[in-house]
Every structure is written in C-alpha cells, then in structure tokens.
C-alpha cells in the first residue's frame, strides 16, 4: 500500500529540523533555564522517532547509521564514567566541577563537567526511546 504523503514528508523534514534545534537548545540551556538531559533527550529522541514514522526504516538508517542500543549503552557509559572519573582526581564519587574559560571568538564561557553527565543522560534517553519504538514497530 503506497500512500501519497508528499506533504507529510515535506512538513516533517522542516519540523524535524526545528525540533532537533529546539532539543539541542533545551539540552544546553538545562543548567540555568528549563531544560536538561532528560528533556533534551526526549525531544531529540521524539524528533528521530518522527523521522522513522514518516519515512521507512531503511531510508532513515542511510542518513543515521546508528545502532540505538549502542547509543543508549554509550550514554550509560558516559554517565557512570564521569561519576567514576571524579575518583581519579581524589574527589568523592560523582563530584562535578565547573569553571570559567576564555575561548577564542566566543569569549568567556561557563563550562561544567555536568554537561558530560547530562550528555550521558540524554544519549541514554534517546537510545532507549528509539530502541523501544523501533523494536515495537519493526516486529511482524
């Protein structure tokens, strides 16, 4: 069954771009404004799911050749890794640190290791979300 869904596909292509940008914004804004790893991950994940629902799996897979189980695993590794990492600096488990750095062009910026931890959270959320939806929809 072939449905004429040109409009859907065109709209989704634009929407996904906006949603992805919004998701990235939410992820980075998280420390000082509403947002963060969970929300960012959820929004990014749902954008990817939207792509999968509109186009078929093969098409999307060509553009994004990731195994999302591995993305989730990478996220878990990153989250626990930053936690363990603090032990090497003689600090208690999960200690986060932050500071101000001067970066060329961007000027003085506030950087924090929490971002790494949050990235782990976000990757896990994305990976799990897409894995769940894909495995349910793939099964015949």
């Amino acid at each position: 069954m072939k449905v004429n869904d040109v409009i859907l596909k065109t709209v989704v292509r634009m929407v996904v771009f906006i949603v992805l940008t919004f998701g990235m914004y939410l992820f980075f804004a998280g420390h000082n404004a509403p947002g963060g790893g969970f929300i960012g991950g959820l929004v990014l994940g749902s954008a990817i799911v939207l792509l999968y629902l509109t186009y078929d799996i093969e098409t999307v897979h060509k553009g994004m050749p990731f195994d999302f189980k591995k993305v989730a695993a990478l996220g878990v590794l990153l989250a626990t890794g930053t936690a363990i990492g603090s032990l090497f600096f003689d600090a208690p488990f999960l200690t986060q640190t932050d500071g101000y750095f001067t970066i060329p062009i961007l000027g003085e910026k506030h950087l924090s290791t929490v971002v790494l931890f949050e990235a782990g959270v976000a990757l896990t959320v994305i990976g799990t979300l897409v894995t769940i939806i894909l495995s349910i929809s793939e099964d015949e």
């Binding site: 769940i132 495995s135 349910i136």
Partner: peptide, 13 residues
C-alpha cells in the same frame, strides 16, 4: 516521569 514511560513500554511489550 521518564521511568514510568519506560515501565509502560516494557509492560506493553
């Protein structure tokens, strides 16, 4: 919220 989503998905499957 996030956990309950995962649990719901798991229960469905």
């Amino acid at each position: 919220i996030v956990i309950s989503f995962a649990v719901t998905a798991f229960l469905l499957v």
